[in-house]
C-alpha cells in the first residue's frame, strides 16, 4: 500500500515538474489557458451560483431556527452567514462541486487524449505534453476558481438575506448590521488561500489521473471517478490543515 502510494506520489511530482518546462510557443499555451478559463469559469458559473444561493439561504434559516427565543441578537444571523460562507462554505463547497464537475471533465478529456494517441502524437512532434496539457489547466484554475469562490461567497450572503428578511426572521437593517459586525479582513484572505489550494488540487490530481490512464473505456471511467474521489479527500484534508494553520 505504501509502495503504491509513493509510486503514484513520485509520478505525480514528476508530472508537475515536467509541466514546468519552457513552453515551445507561449501563445499556444496562452490560448489553451484561455480555453480552460472559459470552460472552468463560465461553464461552472450557473451551478456555483445555484448551490451558493441555497447554502446561504439554508445557513440563515437554520441558524435563525437554532436561535429560537434565546437572548442572542438577531443580527447575529447576518454575521454567522457571512463568516460561515466566507471562511468555509464558499471555498469548500465550491471546491467539492468543481472537483466533481471540472475534475471529472479534465480526467476524461486528458484520458481520452491518451487513449486516442493524441498525447503520443504530440510527444513525437516534440511537444512537452505535460507542459502543454497540464500547465494551462492548472494556471486557468488558479485564476478562475478564486473568482468563482468570491462570487459564491457573495451569492451565499445574498441567499441568506433572501431567505431570512422577506420571510420575517429578521429585518433588513439587522441582517446588514450583522454583515458589518466583527468583520476580520483576514477571513477573506483565508477564503482565497483555500480557493487557490483547492484549485491546484482538483486540477493537478485530475490531470494526473487522465494523463497516465491505461486500458479502455472502463479504465477511463475509473480514472474519472478516482479524480473526483481523491480530489474531494485532499480538499477536505487541506481544508482542515489550512484551518488549523490560519486560525491557530
Amino acid at each position: 500500500m505504501f509502495r503504491n502510494f509513493f509510486f503514484h506520489f513520485g509520478r505525480y511530482v514528476q508530472m508537475l515538474k515536467l509541466s514546468l518546462g519552457k513552453p515551445e510557443k507561449f501563445y499556444m499555451y496562452w490560448n489553451e489557458m484561455l480555453r480552460m478559463m472559459n470552460d472552468i469559469g463560465i461553464g461552472s458559473l450557473v451551478i456555483v451560483i445555484l448551490i451558493s444561493v441555497f447554502i446561504g439561504a439554508v445557513t440563515a434559516i437554520q441558524f435563525a431556527y437554532q436561535l429560537g427565543g434565546q437572548l442572542i441578537p438577531k443580527y447575529y444571523i447576518g454575521y454567522v452567514v457571512r463568516d460561515m460562507t466566507i471562511i468555509e462554505l464558499a471555498p469548500t463547497i465550491t471546491g467539492l462541486v468543481l472537483a466533481g464537475k471540472v475534475g471529472s471533465n479534465i480526467a476524461a478529456e486528458v484520458g481520452a487524449m491518451r487513449q486516442k494517441e493524441h498525447i503520443d502524437a504530440m510527444e513525437i512532434m516534440g511537444v512537452n505534453t505535460a507542459g502543454y496539457i497540464v500547465l494551462p489547466k492548472i494556471l486557468a484554475a488558479l485564476v478562475v476558481i478564486p473568482m468563482l469562490v468570491a462570487i459564491a461567497a457573495f451569492v451565499g450572503i445574498v441567499g441568506g438575506y433572501l431567505s431570512s428578511v422577506p420571510t420575517g426572521w429578521l429585518t433588513s437593517t439587522d441582517y446588514v448590521k450583522g454583515l458589518h459586525e466583527f468583520f476580520l479582513p483576514r477571513n477573506v484572505s483565508m477564503m482565497y488561500v483555500k480557493a487557490t489550494v483547492f484549485a491546484f488540487i482538483l486540477t493537478s490530481v485530475s490531470c494526473y489521473q487522465g494523463y497516465y490512464v491505461k486500458g479502455g473505456n472502463i479504465e477511463l471511467g475509473e480514472a474519472s471517478t478516482r479524480a473526483v474521489v481523491y480530489s474531494n479527500i485532499l480538499i477536505l484534508l487541506s481544508d482542515y490543515v489550512i484551518a488549523v494553520l490560519l486560525t491557530g
Binding site: K116, D120, A121, I124, M125
Partner: peptide, 28 residues
C-alpha cells in the same frame, strides 16, 4: 525531424483539418 501516422490517425477532434495540420507549425 520525425513524422508519424497513427493507426487511428490521432487527429485532434476539436480542431479543423487545417488547424490539425497547422499544429506543428504553430508550435515549432
Amino acid at each position: 525531424e520525425v513524422g508519424m501516422l497513427f493507426q487511428g490517425s490521432a487527429l485532434f477532434d476539436s480542431l479543423t483539418t487545417e488547424q490539425n495540420i497547422r499544429f506543428p507549425l504553430d508550435m515549432f
